[in-house]
Design a protein around this nucleic acid. Structure first.
Length: 589
RNA sequence: GGUCCCGUCGUUCAAUGGAUAGGACGUAACUUUGCGGAAGUUAUGAUGCAGGUUCGAUUCCUGCCGGGACCA
């Protein structure tokens, strides 16, 4: 429709003799009373003429030759364009009005909206998809928790965002490959193993939570200046070496056990969250690959410096800085491993686009690493994208897994699910179904609270406020959809043969519904899932208003057939949209 | 100290350079013989400060103030 209006306007401009190339825009006004589409063409043309006037010092004759039409302000020009447009209006456009500073507003006809409702019902699960990335392969890396450390709410945040981005990209026609990158070697593992050994307990039957506590113990002592801490630090460094060369039988055993236990625990959480990864990359595997690439590219890209190998980012872009890729002990750093990872992704799947999502604090680091990669492989530069998200923070400061003041993802999920159970305590639903519903709704509350705001901003963790079940929330969207489905179920056996009239007025519900594909596209272009979240909330709200104003299932409703189709179109759109956020819709709640 | 990001109702979050800056929470009223009240309706209330560009600036530019990230 937007395209059609663009052509109409271009035609009108031509007929008016405006030969200047006017780059106007067409958008949906924020307020429906200003029409369904709106263009600023008159204002842009006016500005164009003003600039033209300045350039030629106001020679009236020349101006009017160039513009073919005389106008003293945008509003007057808009009126002229309007009259031109009205000479041949297509049936989808009901009327045109000029308003404000010179906007030309298009009001679509009831027929247009009725057709959209049918289109939604025909497309079903395909509704909202586009073909921008048809035939393309896109790899998305996200979550990235570390074995031997707790899966904290930051990982929960990363997972919700990465999963939603994956789905939005998938709706744009791409073949999606989900990847997870995990640090299975390094000081944090040594700290955890030190903690396990010094707990004096047997590992049999112990879980990931316990390993997390052992890690916290080791990490705290490692940083302590107390004699005990100094001693622990030495021991941890010894363990760290032994993990690398696998020279100690007992440590190998603990390592293999702990790695499996924590990874299995992560898998439980992924299942609950609805994520399934195709690839798991590990730092231990990326280290030798990255090291080799770095050493091969000295001195072309990397340089030796005091026994280490570094990359001088500032030589290429003054916004970058120097980072160490192989340290003075000859060991590859995170940077080297990151190079190994990036190239492994391209070697395994050769994606057209490789998206990496990390916390915002990795932003500067990734810029340097990606510059280094693009110097080694110039063809990959345009195929790598880095998306950052904010942190989960306590109201009084930063959350740190190193200090142990973390909220685990599991406990937050449990809290959220408990609130749902509490809300359902008086309902007659069976305990088993209540458990299932509490999972779906609890996860939704959490995911929505993460996905509702634009990426990059922090989320302040407050146990009272961060999980919301009313108003602007995941459960609100689910509840509204469930209610709509409930009407459809009740209407199944009703005969609507004599209730097939089409109403003359169009509600906000229809006006939101047809915009869904545009929202998906916008969300892909910006890689920002919150556009979908915001849209769904507006859509659900418009349904609730509709629901409050209309009696659907009453004998007098001669529009019943159309209303039921409209509700079907609504539930379909909600279902598709919530899927993009990684949220399911329960049967009832 | 350098580079980058961010300052919007009391709180939390929106707004491709557009129209009266929009939701949610909170607060104050109201709506249930009407299909699910986790809902709806109404009221309340904000662009850090000072300039600049523009027909038009929350958005772009400059300076200042305040917060954060990375680097040193």
């Amino acid at each position: 429709m937007q395209h059609k209006i663009t052509l109409l306007i271009k035609e009108a401009l031509k007929n008016l003799g405006i030969i200047e190339d006017v780059s106007f825009s067409i958008e949906h006004p924020a307020d429906f009373k200003n029409g369904d589409y709106s263009t600023n063409v008159a204002m842009v043309a006016f500005r164009g003429r003003r600039q033209f006037e300045k350039a030629i010092d106001g020679d009236e004759n020349t101006i009017n030759v160039k513009y073919g039409v005389d106008f003293t302000n945008p509003h007057k020009l808009a009126e002229k364009i309007k009259i031109e447009l009205e000479k041949d209006l297509p049936k989808e456009i009901l009327k045109i009005e000029v308003a404000g500073a010179g906007f030309i507003n298009f009001y679509l006809s009831q027929e247009f909206f009725t057709e959209r409702v049918s289109e939604i019902l025909n497309k079903g699960e395909e509704w909202g998809k586009n073909k921008i990335l048809e035939g393309k392969k896109v790899m998305v890396e996200y979550t990235d928790p570390n074995p031997f450390k707790p899966f904290h709410i930051g990982h929960l945040m990363a997972n919700a965002i990465g999963e939603s981005i994956s789905r939005v990209v998938e709706f744009s026609g791409a073949n999606i490959i989900r990847a997870n990158y995990q640090g299975d070697v390094g000081p944090h593992v040594a700290k955890a193993i030190w903690g396990i050994i010094h707990s004096g307990e047997k590992v049999e039957g112990k879980n990931a939570l316990w390993i997390g506590e052992c890690y916290s113990l080791g990490a705290t002592l490692y940083e302590s200046l107390h004699p005990k801490g100094v001693e622990a630090k030495k021991e941890i460094e010894v363990i760290n070496k032994k993990i690398y060369d696998r020279s100690d039988e007992e440590i190998n055993k603990i390592y293999d056990w702990g790695r499996k236990v924590t990874l299995d625990a992560f898998e439980e959480i992924y299942k609950l969250l609805g994520t399934k990864f195709e690839y798991y990359f590990f730092e231990s595997e990326m280290a030798p690959i990255g090291e080799k690439i770095v050493r091969e590219n000295v001195p072309k890209v990397f340089n030796e410096s005091d026994g280490a190998i570094v990359f001088h980012g500032e030589n290429y872009d003054k916004k970058l800085h120097t980072r160490v890729f192989i340290n003075s002990q000859g060991l590859p750093t995170y940077e080297a491993k990151e190079i190994g990872l990036a190239l492994t992704k391209f070697e395994k799947e050769n994606p057209d686009l490789s998206i990496t999502t990390t916390a915002i604090e990795q932003g500067e680091y990734m810029k340097v690493v990606q510059k280094a990669i693009s110097l080694v492989h110039p063809d990959l530069e345009s195929r790598m994208k880095h998306v950052t998200h904010g942190m989960m923070r306590f109201a009084d400061g930063k959350m740190s897994s190193r200090k142990g003041n973390v909220i685990t993802g599991e406990s937050l999920l449990n809290d959220s699910m408990d609130i749902v159970k509490e809300k359902m305590k008086d309902s007659k639903i069976s305990e088993e179904e209540k458990r299932q519903i509490s999972e779906i709704v609890g996860v939704s509350a959490l995911k929505y609270s993460i996905l509702r705001s634009s990426l990059g901003s922090d989320i302040i963790y407050d146990s009272e406020k961060s999980i919301s079940f009313e108003g602007d929330s995941g459960p609100y969207l689910q509840y509204t959809t469930v209610r709509a489905n409930s009407i459809l179920n009740k209407a199944k056996d009703l005969n609507t043969d004599d209730k097939k009239e089409t109403p003359e007025s169009v509600t906000d519900l229809e006006k939101y519904l047809y915009q869904f594909p545009e929202v998906v596209e916008h969300s892909y272009e910006t890689l920002q899932p919150h556009h979908v979240a915001t849209y769904l909330t507006e859509l659900a709200s418009s349904f609730n208003t509709f629901y409050g104003n209309k009696q659907i299932l009453v004998e007098e409703n001669k529009y019943m057939d159309y209303h039921l189709n409209l509700i079907k179109a609504f539930t379909q759109t909600m279902k598709n949209g919530l899927w993009l956020l990684g949220i399911e819709v329960p049967e009832r709640m």
